[in-house]
Design a protein around this nucleic acid. Sequence first.
DNA 1: ATACTTTGTTTAATGATTAAACTAATTAAT
DNA 2: ATTAATTAGTTTAATCATTAAACAAAGTAT
Lengths: 392, 392
Amino acid sequence: MKTGDQTLVKQINKSIVLSTIEKKSPISRAQISKETGLNKATVSNLVSDLIADELVNELGQGQSSGGRKPVMLYFNTHAGYAIGLDLGVNYILAVLTELSGEIVEEISVPLSGKDAEHVIQTLSSLVSTLIGKAPQSPYGVVGIGIGAPGIVDPEGHILFTPYLELSEVNLKQILEEKFNIPTVIDNEANTGALGEHLYGAGKNAINLIYVSVGIGIGTGIIMNGQLYKGATGISGEMGHLTIEVNGRKCSCGNRGCWELYASESALLKEAKKMELFKKDDSITLESIESEAKKGNKDVLRLLHSIGEYNGIGLANIINTFNPDMLIIGNRMARFENWITNPIKSVLDERLSSFHRNSVNLKISSLGKYSNALGASAIVSSRFLDINRVEVI
Amino acid sequence: MKTGDQTLVKQINKSIVLSTIEKKSPISRAQISKETGLNKATVSNLVSDLIADELVNELGQGQSSGGRKPVMLYFNTHAGYAIGLDLGVNYILAVLTELSGEIVEEISVPLSGKDAEHVIQTLSSLVSTLIGKAPQSPYGVVGIGIGAPGIVDPEGHILFTPYLELSEVNLKQILEEKFNIPTVIDNEANTGALGEHLYGAGKNAINLIYVSVGIGIGTGIIMNGQLYKGATGISGEMGHLTIEVNGRKCSCGNRGCWELYASESALLKEAKKMELFKKDDSITLESIESEAKKGNKDVLRLLHSIGEYNGIGLANIINTFNPDMLIIGNRMARFENWITNPIKSVLDERLSSFHRNSVNLKISSLGKYSNALGASAIVSSRFLDINRVEVI
DNA sequence: ATACTTTGTTTAATGATTAAACTAATTAAT
DNA sequence: ATTAATTAGTTTAATCATTAAACAAAGTAT
């Protein structure tokens, strides 16, 4: 059982000091003491440790406020590096980040094949490249984080991906054996939620729902500052909430699932029916967006309707979670200009007054980086042993 | 900021020792040491404290296992008492419990008036009576917990009750001033969830959703062993999930809300349309149940359909939370025999295989006591300072 | 030059846990 | 019946993290 002792006390306080420096650097020992309530002596001790760990640097003196000048402390964001991988359906985005989440290298490659071997091969080669590009540092590459589509269990098995042939593959184990670096895999909605929570639009929200609207719709749930993953790691399948009892049959087995009406797939499917695109066989989000920009009435009407359907599901999420913030991410985010208003008017119409006033709807601020950054954040947080996020 | 020190360490360990005794009594110091990993000396010290606090008793010797006989320790469930109030729409159920949750007194009264004064008067008189009946004990009545219908904010204001005239009333403050006893108010779905989690069907589940199906439908959300209340304390309004986009208008402003199809109100409304009940003006759940027992085909068909609609919403909950357990409580629970099968077949039909296998559906095991016991548990837990549940 | 401030370190005390030694009480074996 | 072995619980001394208070260092203000 996890009992208390002095080691625990020190861990807690060291963590507090480190994250204070992370958030407020440059900062002096005296200021840390005032902000945290820890004794000056305690802060001095812990800072010595952190300097020995190379996680913190002393860098010059600050302004005097009527007495001795303070020594300013900085978080050593270059103590190590983390790799974050956004495993998409037809691309992989790989980033190498500092411990602060700053991107130092990024590579994006299309994913031509869908078979396990090809995917693993591509991932590995990206990881190799990024490891090679990581600058010299005390700790090197401290972890590999992966955001994957589909269902991932707590052990890193991908149980099921609808579009890649990775079902039952234990990516975590494969990569750990290959590179001997701690590896973590999670669903893309979860990594996206973490990315936005730590570095993006959701920085100040402790209860936030990240809604990844892509081919399907998935949600990442952060409550009380912790990622919630459910009993077997497959919570957040809110794309499969029934919004029409006798609606169309969904591949999941259910009927009338939200994502059948509000996702990228729904948008493309409806667009294909339009005269405008009939000639064009390979209809894309780009072409839809360009038509919207031109002001094509039919396209605008379609986006309006998709927006409304998004609003209906978002109202469900608000009624369920009463979150501080909702963040819409993934590819639907690019239609921000056309879907925001219909979403808001549906929320106004459908929410009770108690919920209506507390709605805080945002569009992903990290854009295509939410997943990769969230994935890298999981492993750098683990390395820093800061309880910024709870990851099982 | 909440920093670490020796006080914290002692709090943590004392809490661990006390809850070990609570769960496994009778138990010896040596066994506690083995189970928790704490040193024998530490356990002895903490147990001395707990005995001085009168929270633990030594009571006789246990069986030797080849050496000195152990001294058996018991949790002193009579160290204090807690009051739990289930504030219903037309009744109040009040219980006086031991610290273990054992009921020692219970009073149930009908609620004739709906105005604030009458409700407060009735509550106060029940509390007075129970305080009078509490046996002599070291700590007396340690708290008053209330489970109320409607929306309760974190400060104990009832923001809105659909059926009582208590909107904007600060019950917590009123009762605390009157009795000078710490008082906590929460939504009935939350207290129900806590009751089942601590004493009922959900004892072994750390991720559980309690679904209170009464006049409306509310849910109590327990995740990672903690009650989740949302940004402003009004999460869990899953009765208002849209299951028919263009369905009937609901009083909440939304359309096609789940509770319009699956609640007690839906059942009564449909029953009223039946020939059988046309003569009878005051149709009740009792009469419906009695007809079901007689095997009335129309009633059975109606219950089957209500069960199916319950299943549809429960599938939504499972897709959202992937919980260890779902518990159906409140008045719909009495129709267990007729709704369980339709619920299960809907779940089988509508859930993806990953969720289907992990479904754990139960009916409330505390019956009418879930709320009152959950409410009393909040205050006794606070008193014991055990982190059995997180309550804001 | 002097008094006052602020920063950071040193010192001694406090207190919680713990390993190890010890006492107490019981069983099993000779 | 005596002895050895075992288990329960306490005592003792050591360890270690925090802290208040004293102190040293380095500045500002008058």
